[in-house]
Design a protein around this nucleic acid. Sequence first.
DNA 1: GAGTGGTCTAGACCACCAG
DNA 2: TGGTGGTCTAGACCACTCA
Lengths: 233, 233
Amino acid sequence: MHQSGKTSFQDVRDEVIHRIQSGIWPQGTLLPTEVELAEEFGCARATVNRALRELAENGVVDRKRKSGTRVNTAPVKQAKIEIAIVRHSVEEQNAIYRYALVHKEITAIPPWLAAQLDLPITHKVMYLKCMHYADNRPYQFEERWVNIDAVPTILDADLVETGPNEWLLSVVPFTDAQINFCAVGADADLSEFLSTPTGTPVFQLERTTWLQNKPVTFVRMTYHPGYRMSTSY
Amino acid sequence: MHQSGKTSFQDVRDEVIHRIQSGIWPQGTLLPTEVELAEEFGCARATVNRALRELAENGVVDRKRKSGTRVNTAPVKQAKIEIAIVRHSVEEQNAIYRYALVHKEITAIPPWLAAQLDLPITHKVMYLKCMHYADNRPYQFEERWVNIDAVPTILDADLVETGPNEWLLSVVPFTDAQINFCAVGADADLSEFLSTPTGTPVFQLERTTWLQNKPVTFVRMTYHPGYRMSTSY
DNA sequence: GAGTGGTCTAGACCACCAG
DNA sequence: TGGTGGTCTAGACCACTCA
């Protein structure tokens, strides 16, 4: 790569990272200006700019006009969690995926959800319960409410073969989402579907999605006991 | 903003997003080339490039040389979780933060951790237990093992005033981390420190950090019952 | 007011890869 | 082998913000 003799923005980025990690530029240090760095590295200012901009996006440095670029004192580390389709998660573990639709009805929106989504309590939603299995063992219990107004075509969807998870993702691109993680004790439903005693600690993930300020769906996914969600950065 | 009459890369990005969301460019569509888009928007190719590059980074489109730019069929949505200092999380809720060091000893590394970090079982570590309170109510119990080899200065650190969490973050920048989330039932320690009955479901986060392939610390943080971690995208 | 980053331009060359 | 994105350049002007 980059043997063309020119200094690439990646070279600049890597050198800056190196100087920070090796202690040449400790936390809080004010870096030279873009012009100065461009001179030192023998490249255009735009090249330095792109390198530093990327580092700023990653939280490594903090940039302010007039003040300059500073090594971040408390780097806000971010872990990325991929929102995968359940089937893919299961298949990644080389397990056989199976899906089952447990319950499906059109009903009035529950009051707590109406409040949460800012919808009138007379609103109609589709209420679904599904199970996802890995090698025929309970993997995830999915409880979902879909805003029929936002996704009228769901009324004609066959949700027996393909789960609402995959169906929605392939049909309705959403723009915003809000996610919660928590630990709860298994209630009657969870106990039955996840084959575990009532009260067993289980990991739960709730997600609300919107399509341009219009609520699309709220889903509560509960994983089998012992499930661990992992990520790295 | 941008009233200078020139087309900004953000204008291009937003217009592309709009065309995708409004169905003008459905999933899988091959976009015009950068040159064509630059002509249409009346801007330089570099401007279009930056806009499309950003969309590619976010997984909205897929770019390949020669093939061109294509609207992504299965956008990989990612949620970002910020790894904050506990004190900041508490203070963000306008609660009063209090920290207490509960236990501190130099000991041999536990076998399970030695295996996990790929260290010899004769290795010495500092083992710590701490509590974090919000408005004097249990917020988080922290159990931590620190690799003394990687951070020898911790032997002289006063961990009574400042928790190891903040001390390490300010002194030892790490380069890689691996995180696990899960739900567990409170054991004796957790029950006591979090003031909750044994077996109560609690949310647990484990993090291992490395500094250039050298393990630095492994920490297990358990939150008070009812805690919810949230994020959005 | 002046210094610093933020961005756009017009042009150039390069690297990759499908046909 | 040609088309497409990837990147660098040199210069310019703008916008924010600190002193």
